[in-house]
Every structure is written in structure tokens, then in C-alpha cells.
Simulated assay, not measured.
Amino acid sequence: MSSCAFSTCTLQNNELMCNKHLVQFKRNSISTDLSYPKMTWHNSTTCQQSGRRLQCKALNVENNNNYNFLKGNVFQLDDVIEAQQFDRQILSAIFEVAREMETIEKMSRGNQLLKGYLMATLFYEPSTRTRLSFESAMKRLGGEVLTTENAREFSSAAKGETLEDTIRTVEGYSDIIVMRHFESGAARRAAMTANIPVINAGDGPGQHPTQALLDVYTIEREIGKLDGIKVGLVGDLANGRTVRSLAYLLAKYNDVKIYFVSPEVVKMKDDIKEYLTSKGIKWEESADLMEVASKCDVVYQTRIQKERFGERIDLYDEARGKYIVNRDVLSVMQEHAVIMHPLPRLDEITVEVDGDPRAAYFRQAKNGLFIRMALLKLLLLGW
């Protein structure tokens, strides 16, 4: 995708104007029937000259105009790194593509939409659902997968190779990279290095944007709306990248209220609270799961993450088991409400809950396939 990484850009007479800088732009060199909106770019960017085209990377995009997502148009984002990249309009359009992917998955086992494309999965941390759903998504659309499940131990990283060198090497073998890393900010580093799309599949305690996308998609499918909802985020809120990313996306919607329910040692960090306040989102901390569950449309439970505590096992033991979703919690929940969990779970949701129709976490996991199919299609082919 050709774009410009200055502060503001507008397309005027086939020329992309960025502040007082001028970048030549030829529509027919990329796609037909393009209509680029005015955009504002944020955070780190890089530009690289390639022949007669200037290729730039930008990680955060805010769309300032109404924009029609027409088939054949390029996707607005080069990479998927953090939840702040998305606005409501893009989210709605992605969800529409995801619904198309549901139809493809149900009606056809031989779709060839991404035939000839290769996806590399670099996972420096253990994963089951995320890695397999990305690989399934690629194969459902006819693409192929190059995978390394434990890159931290079984790749050249174990020999001391830098992340940047790994990315430069892997991009020579593939068309898109999906990466999970143990360090917050690693996905951004990868995206700034690569000349192909990079998807953040979780970077330490940082973010997990594709999980947040599937979570919001699930809420819309289960509750029927996103404006005016009440969501209880429960469990490890300090280290949980899923709840951090979800909070960023929920802030896009109107009249949302978020309740934070967690042990003291893993409370939600101030940066998320300050962000929500800046966006006019009401939030409240509570120690009473039963009270919160009785008010909420969504109870989003998370695992207390032992791996984030290091040697402080005493703190882990203090936090684990304090808030458990069980039949007692179900008894106070509203009939339309749902229970969600990014999985894997330990004992924070009892198995007796699984049979209740409000237990949405396995449907939530399946929705991850459709969202990731949509993202692969959009990043590689556009709308």
C-alpha cells in the first residue's frame, strides 16, 4: 500500500499532500476505483523509496471522513499492532467481512481466495487457540503456512539473533507475519522492520488486538449492540493484554461503562483508566463480583497469569482463586448477559457453567477464526 507518514495527508488531483510535502501518487499503480479519505497519522512511521513509489509504514490511523469500503479498495492499515488503530467505521466494516467469512467457512471447504500466499507464524510464547486459529484461517482461504511454535527456544533467537534480523529473514519467505512475543512493544519493532504486513498475536503484557477484535465481534453477535453496554472485566487486569486491548476498543462506543474487578495485586493500570476517562468512558473499580455481575451485559473473566509473576509465587497465590464465576454468579446475572473468557481457563470459571446458554467463551473462540480470516483477506487483498 502506498501512503504517506507525515502528520496529515489529503489526496488532491492524484497527489497525496502531507503538510507542505508532496508525494506523487498514481492510482493505477495500485488498484482501480480508489477513494482515499483524509487521514491523521500517529506515532512512529518510516518511509522507503522503491522505484518510483514511496512506501511508508504507519501504525495508528484515525479516519476523519466518511469512507465507503468498496470492493477492490486497499485496506487502510499496513499492520495490525494495537487496538487504537481502529475506529468505529473500520470496525463495522471488518465485522461485515468476518460475517462473509462465516459463510465461506460453513458453505465451502475449498475456498482459494488466498491461494499462492504464505503466512509465517512466529510464536515466542506458547499458544494454542491464537496460533491454530490463524493457521486455520489461512488454510480455509487457500493459503499456506510456515510455522514455528516455540521460537524463543527453537529458532535463531536462541543463538542470539535480534528480532529485527529474524523479521528481515522471514519476510523473504512469506507474504505476511503473525507474531507473538514475550516483550511488550516487540510487534511494533517487527512492523517497523518488515516490508510485509505484521499482525500482533500478543506481545507480553502489552496488547492482543486480534483478540480484542473477536471479543467486540462476539459482544455484538451475542448482545446485539455495542453502544450502551456495561462490561465487567475480571481477574488479572494488570498483566492481561486481552483486557487492555478490549478496553481500548470499547472506548470507541457510546454510553459504555466498564467495571474493574480484580485482586489488589493485579489491578488495572492507570494508563488504561486515564485513556478511558479521556474518551468519556465511565469506569468503576469494585471488589464485589456478585454486584457487578448483576449489572453487566458482559462478564469478561480472565486467568491469573502465573507466568507474569516471576519468582513472586506468593503474590500469585494471593491473587488466584479470589474471583470465580460459578452457579452463584450465574444466579444474579441477567438473562441476556453473557460470560466471556479469552482462554485458557484454570479454575476461574467452573465447568458447571459450561452448560448455561450465557457461557459464550467457546463461541467466542470460534469467532476468532472468522475475524482472523477477515484480517488476512484485508491485509493481503484489500476490501
Rank of each mutant, 00 (worst) to 15 (best):
R244V: 12
L70I: 12
A251M: 01
N14M: 08
E102W: 02
G355I: 06
E102H: 08
N19I: 15
P344G: 13
I371M: 07
M17H: 15
S174E: 01
L276K: 15
R358V: 00
Q305E: 09
K273F: 06
D354W: 04
L54K: 13
L213Y: 11
I199Y: 04
S29C: 02
Y253R: 10
R358A: 00
A337I: 00
V353W: 00
I272V: 11
K366A: 13
S35Y: 15
E318N: 05
V351C: 08
R88N: 09
E125V: 11
K20A: 06
T169N: 02
L380D: 04
Y117M: 07
R363N: 06
M290D: 02
V292C: 04
V23N: 13
L146M: 11
A93Q: 10
L59M: 07
A5L: 13
I229F: 04
K252I: 05
S2P: 03
L91K: 08
L22N: 12
D78I: 08
D297T: 08
I199N: 07
I229P: 00
Q49M: 12
I349G: 00
A158W: 02
K230P: 02
R27I: 10
G355A: 15
T350R: 00
P344F: 15
L16A: 14
I104T: 11
V329T: 11
V265Q: 14
F86N: 00
E222S: 14
L250Y: 07
S7V: 01
A186L: 09
A187L: 12
E220W: 07
N28P: 01
S245T: 09
F95T: 02
D165M: 03
I90E: 04
E164I: 15
S7N: 15
S35L: 10
Y316H: 06
E335T: 07
Q89E: 09
N239G: 11
Q112L: 08
T46Y: 03
I258D: 00
E285G: 02
D347V: 06
G206L: 13
K282V: 10
N200S: 03
L330Y: 01
K139V: 02
T10Q: 09
A83F: 10
V256S: 01
R308V: 11
D165P: 13
E335I: 02
I90K: 01
